[in-house]
Design a protein around this nucleic acid. Structure first.
Lengths: 168, 168
DNA sequence: CTTTATTTTCATTTTTTTTTGAAAGTTTAA
DNA sequence: TTAAACTTTCAAAAAAAAATGAAAATAAAG
């Protein structure tokens, strides 16, 4: 396969995967494009490569910066801004985990805590089932939370090395 | 908080979480409703509780069955079908992991394998960056794959018990 | 069979999400 | 200053996703 073709396929696949996980397809595609670019790109280049509008490129790049996956660079003599993507996959995975934890896990745990305080008749099956389900989900969420905390502090090696042996 | 209010909040929160993770909001809500129902519900009941159409309820319930999260039940003397949700959170987590692995992880690994075979000049930075990025993502994906395999075979205890101590 | 209850399908409509592009805003350099 | 280069915003348009509902299909009962 040619590089040009492979690039297109990678961008397409990454975009699809992103959209399956609730991430805007274009954002995932811009991320893919920058990940495989050795050099930082300008907004113009991103627009041209992916055939997207200026507004879209700008907003998407800002979102990627908010996710900690892309950084703005300035080149001396150049007036334009350049965008460069983090390329270490372990760092990428950690940043994504960190953001989703903050944006989604923490809020849902807060709600589950509130719902755990529901009042009702201990003999009512509807009450019992509700309470048990919410409590169990809360426990699981807290375990995921703790595991992520550990993971976020850990070294790359944690995942690529020893961890797997523990479960053999 | 009253049970009725708590139920609504739970259904709403579960629907929101689902949509953030690429799962149709209504599907997540139907799942939430069934998880907190001690008894299996009919299509009619699901329609009424969530104010959704028959077609929507039917398709959503079928999807939940495909995900292995809900089962159809038949009651003697009753002609209607009843729907009952798995309530063990560890089983739910496993089923979801299993399905997403099959639907998303396996396909992307296949593509990454193909892209790893890209031909090019070993001195071209564009080629090098592409190759490195794709290879690294492939390695990570394979590690996630292996970890999931282990997890899927493991006991509930794996997650709720010992595992966390390993990382202390 | 025939009727009736129930489930499924899918073309159409509605809603939600994403994208566009032009105007407004900002920064830099002369 | 002023003007050109560049970035950001956001109302409107387009596209994508989800929901509706009535007709078709299926299944059970008489």
């Amino acid at each position: 396969m040619e590089l040009a073709e492979a690039k297109l396929k990678f961008i397409e696949a990454w975009g699809k995967l992103g959209s399956e996980w609730g991430i805007n397809r274009t954002m995932a595609q811009v991320h893919a494009l920058l990940m495989i670019s050795p050099e930082a790109l300008t907004t113009e280049e991103v627009m041209a490569e992916l055939s997207i509008s200026r507004g879209n490129a700008n907003m998407t790049l800002r979102d990627l910066i908010d996710w900690g996956l892309v950084e703005k660079q300035h080149k001396t003599g150049e007036r334009k801004e350049f965008f460069y993507a983090e390329k270490d996959v372990w760092t990428i995975a950690r940043r994504v985990a960190e953001e989703r934890k903050k944006r989604e896990l923490t809020p849902i745990i807060k709600i589950l805590d509130q719902l755990g305080a529901v009042e009702g008749d201990a003999k009512d099956p509807a009450y019992k089932t509700f309470k048990t389900t919410v409590t169990d989900i809360n426990k699981l969420a807290n375990n995921v939370n703790k595991t992520l905390d550990t993971m976020l502090k850990a070294e790359e090696n944690w995942f690529f090395g020893s961890i797997l042996k523990v479960f053999k």
